[in-house]
Amino acid sequence: MKSVDIISTLRSLPAPEPDAGRMRRTLRLCRAEYRARRPLRRVGAWELMRRQLRFTILPVWALQGALLLFICLALGAARPAEELIPASASLAAELAALTALPFHSRARRYGMEEVEAAARLSRAKLTLARLGAAAVGDAVCVAAAALLSGGGWYVTLVFVATPFLLTTAVSLAALSRAGGVYSAICLGALMALGYYAAAASWSFDMLRISPLLAAGICLAAIAAIAVEMYAEIRGNGMEKRLGYEY
């Protein structure tokens, strides 16, 4: 027998007529079920992010508050010895960059990433809310370090903005590539220590760097941070991590 005949016979298999009474009963039950359901309310992007903040803000801001206190004390103590101020300011900025890391990718660390991904919440918005909460605290810490260092815009650029951006870029890159928060913290801390040592030993030489070069480094770091954050928000590589893609 030819396949064509089989297919046409399969297509002509009898389709029994539905019982009209039973169909009416199904329709009636479905209508009742539809009316009785509790309609879901669509939550907008901002509302979702605002609601997420209460779960995120407390631990991140507590750590950043403690850091802020440390920045005030350290830079206040360094004020009499002016040569210590650039190194202290850069250390404060670098620590600010590292504060968000312990709270980053917690779902991944505790093996709950799949559960989080399966929830009907937008992963992108969740990540954005978390990053936003950490960024607000970071901005306050960096602003405090810049103000308390008492230098001009160039001192702020070289000893606050550059170390902050470089440490953030390195730690985020390590987070996505080295595959763990601990390795990201270690690499970020190494970067921070290196910059701190350079600021402590060659602060005057560092101030002679061309402003264009410093601005270029900052811009490159910002671009690298943007790329890493975009990848994080999009959830790149999640399928592979969860074993759905080889």
Partner: peptide
């Protein structure tokens, strides 16, 4: 019937 009831329950 159960199929359509489940469909209505989860339609949102």
């Amino acid at each position: 019937q159960e199929t359509f009831l489940n469909c209505v329950r989860h339609i949102e």
